[in-house]
Write a protein that binds this DNA or RNA. Sequence first.
DNA 1: ATACTTGTTCAAGTACACATGAAGTCAAGG
DNA 2: CCTTGACTTCATGTGTACTTGAACAAGTAT
Lengths: 134, 134
Amino acid sequence: MDGLTISAVARQAGLRPSALRYYEAAGLLPAPARVSGRRRYDATVFERLAVIRLAQAAGFTIAETRTFLNGFAPDTPPPDRWRALAAAKLPAVDAQLVRLLGMRQVLEAGLRCECLALAECARRLSTDGATDQV
Amino acid sequence: MDGLTISAVARQAGLRPSALRYYEAAGLLPAPARVSGRRRYDATVFERLAVIRLAQAAGFTIAETRTFLNGFAPDTPPPDRWRALAAAKLPAVDAQLVRLLGMRQVLEAGLRCECLALAECARRLSTDGATDQV
DNA sequence: ATACTTGTTCAAGTACACATGAAGTCAAGG
DNA sequence: CCTTGACTTCATGTGTACTTGAACAAGTAT
């Protein structure tokens, strides 16, 4: 009687049932009760899903998210968990950010390109180069 | 006698031979001459590789790079090629950039976290939320 | 002649986060 | 009883840019 079906949870959470099964298999969601084989969730699953969503927004991989959720003593407070993972993740995000900003530079330089041959582009728009002026 | 072996080109370009074969199969590099089955490159391959490197720096996928290189009439000047591809790529890069900046926000908020439970984190550090102050 | 090095092709593996399809189970409705 | 619909598990597919391994060929050195 009580307990939400997987499709009900998925619908409310904006996910697909396969994602919920995947999270469970990946150790992000605890295995819920079963009624004749079918999963029955209680409302606390939504809090869990919200944390997973937050971890995803932080750029954590599934493995990192699993560590974040289950990789500590059960009573470990969130700040300790964050510090353990976010500190390691920030440099990676920043590196990605630098790469993307570099892409922007190259693309904008490309849009201002007046080269006559592609080889000329390669010389002028070098990745590492300081190409400011036309 | 003339012509560089695949390993010589790879070494000078900072790539591995497998990458050169891959580029060739992907249509980024023209098939070079062969001497008893082995590839022999001439020096122009380095210009080509420089352009490929530039395209990669712009964030182009292999398919986009192939279009950039071979998807136009042979005499199409670089500016036309750039405009066709860079204009489509920039919004994607910017979207990626926004996502990464969001990650940074979440990670930094996580580092300042003082929540007592993970569910609290999810409520306070919501992805879309305006979480400025402690 | 024989071993070594370097090359060749082709198939399959890598990481990530799920989606998809096949085949079977289960309860309710007609 | 039989169909329908939602569910189950398990294996495989998706996209990207290569790398790696297997099995084999050919030129070079000893």
